[in-house]
């Protein structure tokens, strides 16, 4: 495998006493579509801003295509296509003027491509940007982010604020224009169904920490829900990788990461159980808000007998 297109190593950032990123490390191979998942305030935008050298990190190392944005932000930015969350562009300009203005800053700017895509996306080239609809404005942002054919594309929650149809179209463009041209794409999103279909791999960011990375398929293979009766495992220590425990009277439903190992143990012990597949939505939920306090500590009857 080639060198990672985006490498993040031990990244730390805090605002005052609030730690926004704690030892975040990531490697994204070239050509991969990588989704960054996390709740609001998990640190996605901060991380993306550090990747572009917009804000300095407290410590840690970041490289995009082998270049450190903290040292040479301009080179990084000229090789990266970026679409910010809720981005505004000069409202008084027209799309064509915006392209003309940006062209001198990128040696690889492709004006014909830009015009072609403005046309394809149905953006009026001579209308004021301030008058474009939300969806058109996101698409214009995408055209502007891609017209210099960047090898790396970073999209910060691009689908936010788009209606379902526009979102689907947007994802379609993502698949059609970026994945097929071999771009490395890093994007953040809240819409897990769409992420599952579009992304190769995901990272789950929670409170400034990366709690899990993996390809979507791997994640679904490894994270499973197991159903069994409480008594059968009472007294055993909570297994490694336990994410969420839920008790329904004497039945126990728990979600466990790297489940294969534990399932093997259950089989070896001859304990009755069911393994349930989970959707990405449920997996994300387990990682982010899963609780493990309900794991049965001691068998219920032995507690009653002890006095």
């Amino acid at each position: 495998m080639s060198a990672p297109a985006i490498r993040v190593d031990q990244l730390k950032k805090s605002y005052g006493s609030q730690q926004v990123l704690q030892n975040v490390s990531l490697n994204i191979p070239a050509g991969q579509t990588f989704a960054l998942l996390g709740r609001n305030g998990a640190g996605k935008t901060t991380m993306i801003r550090i990747l572009l050298g917009l804000i300095p990190a407290d410590s840690g190392n970041v490289q995009l295509g082998g270049i450190d944005p903290a040292i040479d932000p301009l080179t990084v930015r000229s090789h990266v296509g970026y679409l910010a969350e809720d981005q505004a562009m000069y409202g008084w300009m027209t799309p064509i003027e915006l392209c003309r203005f940006l062209a001198p800053f990128y040696p690889t700017w492709d004006m014909n491509w830009a015009r072609d895509y403005l046309d394809r996306f149905g953006i009026p080239p001579h209308g004021r940007i301030g008058r474009l609809s939300k969806g058109q404005s996101v698409k214009l942002g995408l055209v502007v982010a891609l017209s210099h054919h960047p090898p790396i594309v970073i999209l910060d929650d691009p689908a936010m604020g788009l209606d379902p149809i526009a979102r689907k179209e947007f994802n379609r463009d993502l698949v059609e224009h970026l994945q097929t041209s071999g771009c490395t794409v890093l994007y953040s999103s809240h819409l897990l169904d769409e992420v599952e279909a579009v992304a190769d791999a995901v990272a789950i960011l929670d409170h400034g920490r990366i709690v899990r990375t993996g390809t979507t398929d791997l994640l679904r293979d490894e994270v499973k829900q197991i159903l069994l009766s409480c008594d059968s495992i009472a007294g055993t220590p909570p297994p490694e990788g336990l994410l969420d425990v839920c008790r329904h009277e004497d039945r126990l439903a728990f979600i466990i990461d790297r489940s294969e190992n534990y399932v093997g143990q259950l089989i070896a012990k001859g304990i009755d159980h069911d393994v349930v597949d989970l959707s990405l939505d449920e997996i994300f939920e387990a990682f982010v808000i899963g609780r493990t306090q309900d794991w049965p500590g001691k068998p219920a009857n032995s507690a009653a007998m002890s006095p």
């Binding site: 572009l52 930015r77 505004a88 800053f105």
Partner: peptide
Amino acid sequence: SAELDPRLGAFWRSRPIS
């Protein structure tokens, strides 16, 4: 003022303009 607004700021700051 316009370009210091976070939304527009995010745009021009991410361009290769020092």
